[in-house]
Write a protein that binds this DNA or RNA. Sequence first.
RNA 1: GGAGGGAUGGCCGAGCGGUUUAAGGCGGCGGUCUUGAAAACCGUUGACCGAAAGGUCCGGGGGUUCGAAUCCCUCUCCCUCCGCCA
Length: 424
Amino acid sequence: MLDIAFIRNNPDLVKEGIRKKRMRMDLDELLAVDEQVRGLRRDVEQIRADRNRLSKEIPKLKGAEKDEAVAQVKGLKDGLTSKEPQLREAEERFEQLMLLVPNPPAPEAPEGDSDDDNVEVRTFLEPRQFDFQPKDHLELAESLDILDIPRAVKISGARMYCLKNEGVMLEFALFRFTLDHLISKGFQPMIVPQLVRREAMIGTGFFPLGEEDTFFIEKDNLYLIGTSEVPLVAYHMDEILNEKELPKHYCGYSSCFRREAGSYGRDTKGFYRLHQFNKVEQISICVNDPEVSRQEHNLLLSNAEEIMQALKLPHRVALACSAEMGQGQVLKHEIETWMPSRGKYSETHSCSTLHEFQARRLMIRWRSKAGQTRFCHTLNNTAAASPRILIPILENFQNADGSVTVPEALRPYMRGIERIEPKQ
RNA sequence: GGAGGGAUGGCCGAGCGGUUUAAGGCGGCGGUCUUGAAAACCGUUGACCGAAAGGUCCGGGGGUUCGAAUCCCUCUCCCUCCGCCA
């Protein structure tokens, strides 16, 4: 959510942001409703001020004077009962519209329509050249006996999977390695609820626009999280944090659930797009200084890059173009990892700066030494998400004999296994 | 699932129809004292809207009343005990 004062003073900038993000939203309607709310509020508050003033006199009055004053206040009440519902209605509409306004992209974010317009920032390692016919991750996983999709579909439907054997070990190794790296950087490891209330979804900016992509447990009115960003950021909802405790650095492990509505037929094979996956996510909550925010962004991004470098996975860092950015994002970098079967770099990480967007919705504030309360800035970045990251691991580290070499960094967490061999 | 108790400022907690402009404590900030620190003492300190005047806010909504933190209804949430259970 943006500051309405900012919107009033910079309507063109906000409209430009709506256009760049390729969103549909009528900002003029919001500005009109804003005018309406302010007018009604002025009227209502004037009546209330009069009533309060008169009411205070009443206990001091006696007899006819008192009766007259009481009658006068009664008269004011009629004015209130007609105006108050109008005000409430206008305020409700105002709140609805405010939830739809996107955060304008930072000037450095490239304008564009799809991930083809993302701008490469740097690369790490060259894509591997094979001197044999490489297999895709599905073939590999099947022959290694670390995957069972047909049975997952039998019990749960499309876009579901079962990991088995070394596949499970590999995933746990990856997350342990990732957590250890982040803990050594001072990040607080967290396991958080994966079912959350609506407020957490709205507050982190996933609702109302992303509601279709979310699993909902109707009986209990709870939503399955699509990322632990939701509970980790909402963790400090309605709190006022002390300047001294900022920035807050968390790394949360959770499963993630996404309906992938509207993506039918896209990426239907393999580990790329699933209803359920696991992820370690990094979160930073800091003071609302764009400079600090920028430093935090770089910190989260380099943490993820360090993990990818340690795994020796060829990847590139790219600036996401405007249309690829979420409603609340000001700046987004993606790490795209080389996936031989796709013949291109594909997104495995997403690092986002949101400035005050989430903190305003969640009422996460900080108190400065001078005693002022301000909204915080929030940021998040993937540290590792599996099984998607297993695609480049399996495909890049496959050998001519069909085995897969375990990345050195993960071996200490794999009971020393160096290779996963084909079965049967 | 059964029974009960709660929701008040950054935190704890009093207040139960009209000096509440929300007591008191803790914490924060400033100061006195001290070589420095601690302790002690003194002062100060709620949030939101508004350019300001002013208004709003005691979990949300509705009601009673001239007037509600305070009374009534309702919803949400939290806690305790019992039952069941990983």
